[in-house]
């Protein structure tokens, strides 16, 4: 194919953010509006692909949208949207980063199970983990341990034999900036045999799973907020029976 190929704007699709002004029409939406819109959408939605899409589909979808939003495109160019989809592409095009991102999505799904899931929503999201929230800027030590174990559990469930995460992935998923925070938690969990180290990754052990199970009932109480609502909300423990049943 020729290299200066410029696709026409794609046909509108359901669930996609409204496009900027059409050629000749009003000016495209201001940048920060686009950024605001983008915040509510997953990276998959930004690139208009299914969550289980093959890497090829993601690459073509990006190429398509990039050609449309590229600032050099005099008709449909939009620098802000270009930046947003390029950021999405940077994560989704890298297998490891995509996996890490999928885990954050699964965690989000678990905290809002009533939201209609797309067909392709990873099955791992469906019966996924109990919700956990950041309650302060630095993780409370116990919460951090539980959060780490939950993330590792998710990875283990995906691949029972070898599933785990690197320290870097954990930091990305849990949005921890200081390496010391996570190192300390990992040290504790290893000393207690709740995690084991695989090839450049940490994996949850059966001891860790048991600890997590025990701890979760407590976090329901510890976790601030409306207790009655918590008790009735099936969200909190939604994932557990499935976890244990496996």
């Amino acid at each position: 194919m020729s290299t200066n190929w410029q696709p026409p704007p794609p046909p509108p699709r359901p669930n996609m953010p409204p496009q900027g002004g059409a050629g000749g029409g009003p000016a495209p939406a201001p940048g920060n509006a686009a950024a605001q819109e983008a915040k509510d959408l997953s990276l998959y939605e930004l690139l208009q692909v299914d969550r289980n899409a093959h890497s090829t589909i993601i690459r073509y979808a990006y190429r398509y949208l990039a050609a449309m939003y590229h600032p050099d495109n005099s008709e449909t160019g939009d620098a802000e949207k270009f930046r947003i989809i390029t950021d999405a592409w940077k994560t989704l095009s890298d297998e490891i980063r995509r996996q890490a991102y999928d885990m954050t999505l699964a965690v989000q799904d678990a905290s809002k199970p009533q939201a209609a899931k797309g067909p392709g929503a990873s099955q791992f999201g469906r019966d996924s983990l109990p919700k956990f929230e950041r309650t302060s800027l630095t993780w409370n030590e116990v919460e951090l341990r539980i959060a780490v174990l939950q993330v590792l559990l998710a990875a283990r469930r995906k691949k029972p034999a070898t599933g785990g995460c690197s320290g870097k992935m954990l930091m990305d998923i849990l949005q921890i900036d200081d390496v010391r925070d996570i190192e300390f938690a990992l040290w504790y969990l290893r000393e207690k045999s709740m995690i084991e180290t695989g090839e450049r990754s940490f994996m949850i052990t059966a001891v860790g799973l048991d600890y997590l199970t025990g701890e979760l009932s407590k976090t329901q109480i510890l976790d601030g907020g409306n207790t009655t609502e918590k008790r009735t909300a099936p969200t909190v423990n939604a994932g557990l029976p499935a976890v244990l049943g496996k």
């Binding site: 509108p12 699709r13 299914d50 969550r51 289980n52 899409a53 093959h54 589909i57 067909p119 392709g120």
Partner: peptide
Amino acid sequence: WDLLAASEVCGLPIPE
């Protein structure tokens, strides 16, 4: 089949 579904072609000629 699952991959075709994820590629969103299972309803290719059906209107959106």
